[in-house]
Design a protein around this nucleic acid. Structure first.
Lengths: 243, 243
DNA sequence: AGACCCGGTAAAGGTTGGGTAAACCGTTTT
DNA sequence: AAAACGGTTTACCCAACCTTTACCGGGTCT
């Protein structure tokens, strides 16, 4: 399934039918969509923390531009806004962009295009969100990991990891010696919440362990905390500490 | 911790509204922002010692390029300049870089993105690591590249590269042994963000590899990091190094 | 002990990112 | 105007990768 990690969108549009339609399409894609059918309501709802706002330019009570302006003034500076407008009106576009819209979609648009843009914007905003998270170098208990080179080593031997495995390892190492519950790990590594019967993360951990062990047979750093999650452990793996 | 140590920015842009908006959210981020609403004023104010200058390409009295040129002539060669350009204008980008802009941001940009880039530039300039451009001669792992002659060689053999291919190679080589994510590469080489279903950069990489290999069959320096981007690798490509 | 739950993992299945040829298109050159 | 050139888009394909399924074993609860 094309899970969108439960991204939460807000649609501000007076057209009720269109709203229903979009809702359906976007929910098929795994987004959650709230709707506001007039500017005032939209502004109110925009206080909440959405991942993206879809804003129609033409509405009866107030124009999309006014709405946008107010939303931006209300400290919702960071939420991406995608403006929907009736005609390929260049003026609209320029105006919208200068007021801080992040993208602009002229009607008529295909659902496919809408979805593509929504995804693109969300991806972009999430990338921007982690500015400092870029350069990480971790070196714990014989395992090294470096985000800039996207490489990992166990006792000096290069680990050929997939991106997901890399993220799993990174997440666990950042929280070294602390338990990371399965849901958080899933979220961090796969970008979505864990679902019923979802064994995906277990598989990745399994594969990760396998790869580490193929290269450093004595290193057993990833410990299972039954019923909770996993933990990257520092201590020599002294099988079980009795105490 | 979001304190930006009172970095002082100058925005040169004729659009008053946009200026206000930018001012607001950059100040939220802890920057101080002065504004100039035309080229002449901008040049005058740029005499002062700002940490960074934001410069709009399109202004009524004179183009951003002229402004940039004059600022650079006036000994303000060290202040980083971030150019704000209209969407995906290739000419703008090339011209800007040749005149010594340090980065450029195509509209539409998210506020997040702007802030991220401003921070990145300031950080970079404080480390006094100039990012791109200037007279660069690179020689890494059997491949040579020289911006002043705009020529590149692989194991001594001249590579006939297009401008874009050259830029791609340059970008990757500057960041040798580090992953360059697709979006950054796109931005650096093509001057615009990557869009949904945008395969352009892949094609350039593909062509570049082809040209290198035509001349030096053993050199496989450009590595793909699936789901992330590309990396120029130093090490002998020796597929997998064992033990 | 029996029933249940959770996690390990092999194998199968499904999805997708990226390589690349070729068509397309706007510019520049001849 | 034709040809050349370079960038972009389209389309197809495959291997890499992620997810699901299924089975198993050990731990835990009653």
């Amino acid at each position: 399934m094309t899970e969108q990690a439960n991204h939460h969108l807000l649609l501000i549009d007076d057209d009720f039918n269109l709203g229903q339609l979009l809702k359906e399409y976007l929910e098929i894609e795994g987004f959650k969509l709230d709707t506001a059918h007039n500017g005032a309501d939209g502004i109110a709802k925009a206080e909440k923390d959405y991942d993206l706002i879809l804003l129609d330019v033409m509405m009866p009570d107030m124009s999309g531009f006014e709405v946008l302006k107010i939303i931006r003034q209300k400290k919702q500076i960071l939420t991406p806004v995608l403006m929907l407008t009736a005609k390929g009106d260049e003026m609209d576009r320029v105006l919208g962009l200068e007021l801080g819209a992040d993208d602009y979609l002229p009607k008529p648009y295909s659902h496919r295009e809408l979805v593509a843009r929504v995804k693109a914007l969300i991806r972009r905003s999430q990338m921007d969100m982690s500015p400092e998270q870029k350069q990480i170098h971790l070196d714990v208990g014989g395992i090294e990991l470096d985000t800039s080179t996207h490489s990992a080593k166990a006792e000096g031997n290069i680990l050929e990891l997939t991106t997901t495995e890399f993220k799993v390892l990174q997440t666990l190492m950042i929280e070294a010696n602390k338990v990371v519950d399965k849901n958080s790990l899933n979220l961090a590594a796969l970008g979505r919440r864990i679902e019923a019967y979802d064994r995906s993360i277990d598989m990745h951990v399994s594969n990760l362990r396998k790869k580490i062990q193929a290269v450093a047979p004595d290193l057993q750093r990833i410990k299972t905390i039954r019923g909770v999650g996993y933990m990257f452990t520092d201590e020599e793996n002294a099988a079980e500490e009795q105490e």
